[in-house]
Design a protein around this nucleic acid. Sequence first.
DNA 1: GACATATTTGCACAAACACGCAAATATAGG
DNA 2: CCTATATTTGCGTGTTTGTGCAAATATGTC
Lengths: 102, 102
Amino acid sequence: MSTDQTESLANLLKALGEYNRLSMVYELCNCQAPRNAMCLCECCSVDASVASRHLKVLAQEGIVKIEKKGRERIYSLNRADIATKLRALADQIEAEPTLKTA
Amino acid sequence: MSTDQTESLANLLKALGEYNRLSMVYELCNCQAPRNAMCLCECCSVDASVASRHLKVLAQEGIVKIEKKGRERIYSLNRADIATKLRALADQIEAEPTLKTA
DNA sequence: GACATATTTGCACAAACACGCAAATATAGG
DNA sequence: CCTATATTTGCGTGTTTGTGCAAATATGTC
């Protein structure tokens, strides 16, 4: 695992590893329709500016994607992408290393 | 997903989401034999005290387990536990919610 | 144009965090 | 008992981070 890959994965996990951001991810997760920021700031009782910043972090890490629609931004999860990355980490952690000096 | 569960998962992800800690996890991941803290502080070029604190965080989140052996502490990954939790999150994120108002 | 709504940005602030060093503690071995 | 090695803890420090408020920006509506 390269340094860059490790850092990039650490950033992804850090983005998910904050309570309000993870709550937003769950909120997006359980919604059929994508949500705007106003809706998402309600789900964790924070100021709209805070929600905006959290969503920016999630977007930078590729966790959510943004679609402009009028004066709103519509957020939705990059479901497959995140799932794939999390599973790759899970696989890597679970796999016992193979013996080199057999 | 309850508040407590969300917080606990956020803490797990936060523990993994720091570069040096994730590097230590990878190091443990790729080693047949468990490692002591001295070995782990070398892998990311930090002071022994820093490694000790990082490993404490990882242990508190159940990511590594500690075994005392003489004056050393031997660390090893809770491979299955972490993998299971990461996959559960992946599944949850990937699954589109089912329509309630059919 | 005036106004309402959604979002972003600047600012300040407190709390959390990562870090290194030095001292303290624990334990093995002479 | 003395010394060496491994680890933890106390302390200070600089940085990052989450937060709310107010102002700025963007865009829809009348």
